[in-house]
C-alpha cells in the first residue's frame, strides 16, 4: 500500500486529505498514477483533469511526471505552489 496525500484544490476536489492505495503493477511513473487515479471516479477525473497543472512529490521531493515512482512510501499530488 502507498500513502497518497493531496493538497489545496486537488484535496478539495477529491474530497479527502489522504488515502492508502494499492498501486496496480502497471503504475510505474507519475503519469501512470494520474491515469490510474482518474479511473477511480468523477471526483478524481475532475481534480486531475489538467495533468500538466498537477505537481508530484515522491517521499517529499519533487519529481517529473515521467520519472519512476520506485518504492515510494508517500506520494503527494498538488497544484502549482503559491507561497511566499
Amino acid at each position: 500500500m502507498t500513502r497518497i496525500v493531496y493538497f489545496a484544490w486537488v484535496r478539495e476536489r477529491i474530497g479527502k486529505n489522504e488515502e492508502q492505495i494499492e498501486l496496480p503493477a502497471g503504475v510505474r511513473t507519475g503519469s501512470d498514477l494520474l491515469s490510474h487515479l482518474k479511473s477511480l471516479g468523477d471526483e478524481y477525473a475532475y481534480a486531475l483533469e489538467h495533468e500538466t497543472a498537477i505537481r508530484i512529490a515522491v517521499d517529499q521531493e519533487h519529481v517529473e511526471h515521467d520519472e519512476p515512482l520506485g518504492s515510494a512510501r508517500e506520494i503527494a499530488l498538488f497544484p502549482p505552489m503559491t507561497g511566499g
Partner: peptide, 28 residues
Amino acid sequence: VMDFLKTSAPFWKKEHRADGRAGDWVDA
C-alpha cells in the same frame, strides 16, 4: 531563496473574501 521558495516550496494560498463569498485559490 525567495524566487525558489515561491515556485517550489509546497505552500498554497486561498482567499477569504471580505463579502463572505467563497474565495478562490491563488493562481501561480
